[in-house]
């Protein structure tokens, strides 16, 4: 009986923690990341997760020809700044923020339609005793060209 009670309590704690983390991540994304997309129009899809150092996240999306896009990679607190790169279908690196002072946004125009992959990484630091962890969001916006 004690085992069951312990399991329920553990589950409740984990569930509540996870739900709270998600809510905090959502709040962080809404308040800190979404404004960075302006004046680009948000594609409306939330890509957020709590990542630990060493973790990698990827976003796959079709980018249409003759459009202007902005990618925002937004990290909270101790995991900031994060690295991100854009790769084509063959895995060729098109852009890496490590070559641009770890910027958190990149604007670009596309000449042709293609599936691109945004790869985000949380760099590991030298302190093995402390595991860094925080919310990371990848947002995509496009420009209303007034067609």
């Amino acid at each position: 009986m004690r085992t069951i009670t312990y399991a329920i309590l553990t589950f409740t704690f984990v569930f509540a923690f996870a739900a709270n983390s998600y809510s905090q991540c959502k709040t962080f994304t809404k308040s800190k990341c979404n404004p960075k997309l302006s004046p680009y129009i948000y594609n409306g899809q939330l890509n957020s997760a709590v990542l630990n150092e060493g973790d990698v996240a990827e976003l796959m999306l079709t980018f249409y020809s003759d459009h202007d896009y902005r990618i925002v990679v937004c990290a909270a607190g101790e995991v900031e700044p994060v690295t991100f790169s854009l790769k084509d279908n063959a895995g060729n690196v098109i852009f890496s923020n490590e070559d641009h002072n770890l910027v958190d946004t990149w604007d670009f125009h596309t000449n042709s339609t293609q599936q691109l992959r945004v790869e985000v990484g949380v760099p590991e630091d030298d302190n093995p005793k402390k595991q860094k962890s925080g919310c990371v969001s990848i947002l995509v916006g496009f420009l209303d060209s007034g067609e």
Partner: peptide
């Protein structure tokens, strides 16, 4: 490794 799949 996490993968997010978006649609235009």
């Amino acid at each position: 490794k996490k993968i997010f799949l978006n649609l235009p």
